[in-house]
């Protein structure tokens, strides 16, 4: 069930350079959101027609609170960064499929987040614990954010070496000799591509959350497709809708 609703802003604060944490009272959406799903956030400026897809960082179904963590990427997200307590913002969600939590049950699961791909891994970690053996590897350019919120063991990689392993998430995985049965990941395409290759070498399952420019967010417009290895049942061609068949795909099923 998807909802379009007005959400009341509970707070919006900066937690890193151009990174914002927005807490919303959004009962219907927070109550049904699964980790790895996203919401469409609509601008209050009528000149900005398209919603911004933002992943669910935390969803507290009991209290109806949704936490979105996003980076300012343009005028729309800049507007959201200026939302203040008691402001209203319109949302549609929850959208997309989310991570296949069943694949991680009672197994060693490695959650990999790169940059602004880190937020959805937080709710994923919270839902997987304590049943699964969860470890997170988080990659940053320099400044850390959200790392302290994770309830599991966290390994850090920074490009400038200011914290953790100097390099990328795969450098950290190799340096720490981290072993896993399954990988869930969200981050830049170059990171997902490297993880897909790594999972293939290791012979382990790997699910990645993809990003693509979206318009409708609900599967109608076919803007946000990614290339699939096999012909997709819905499209009848080798294209899958990131907003509907995704955003989480088995890495072996898609071209990254």
């Amino acid at each position: 069930m998807k909802y379009t609703q007005k959400a009341k802003v509970l707070g919006c604060e900066t937690i890193g350079k151009n990174i914002y944490s927005l807490r919303l009272q959004a009962d219907d959406i927070a109550g049904s959101a699964a980790p790895g799903q996203f919401v469409s956030v609509y601008s209050n400026d009528s000149a900005r027609m398209l919603p911004r897809p933002i992943s669910v960082c935390e969803a507290d179904g009991e209290r109806g609170i949704l936490r979105l963590v996003f980076r300012i990427a343009g005028a729309g997200t800049e507007e959201f960064s200026k939302l203040r307590e008691d402001d209203e913002v319109r949302l549609t969600g929850p959208l997309g499929n989310g991570f296949p939590l069943g694949e991680a049950a009672r197994r060693r699961v490695l959650l990999v987040g790169g940059g602004i791909g880190i937020p959805p891994m937080l709710e994923t970690a919270k839902r997987l614990m304590p049943e699964a053996d969860v470890r997170a590897v988080l990659g940053f350019r320099d400044e850390l954010f959200l790392a302290e919120d994770f309830p599991c063991e966290v390994t850090i990689a920074t490009e400038d070496g200011s914290a953790g392993t100097k390099g990328n998430v795969l450098d950290a995985i190799r340096a720490q000799k981290i072993e896993a049965d399954v990988i869930f990941a969200c981050g830049p395409a170059v990171m997902l591509r490297a993880l897909k290759k790594y999972a293939l070498e290791q012979g382990i399952g790997c699910w990645v959350s993809m990003e693509e420019k979206m318009a409708c967010g609900i599967g109608a417009c076919l803007s946000c497709v990614c290339r699939s290895v096999q012909t997709d049942e819905h499209s009848q061609v080798k294209n899958k809708r990131v907003c509907t068949e995704g955003p989480v795909f088995r890495s072996a099923d898609i071209e990254i």
Binding site: R48, M49, E212, K213, M214, C221, S223, C224, C226
Partner: peptide, 11 residues
């Protein structure tokens, strides 16, 4: 039909 490569839209 396969359609075009992405990105397919912009605001």
């Amino acid at each position: 039909w396969e359609g075009n490569p992405t990105p397919r839209i912009c605001e």
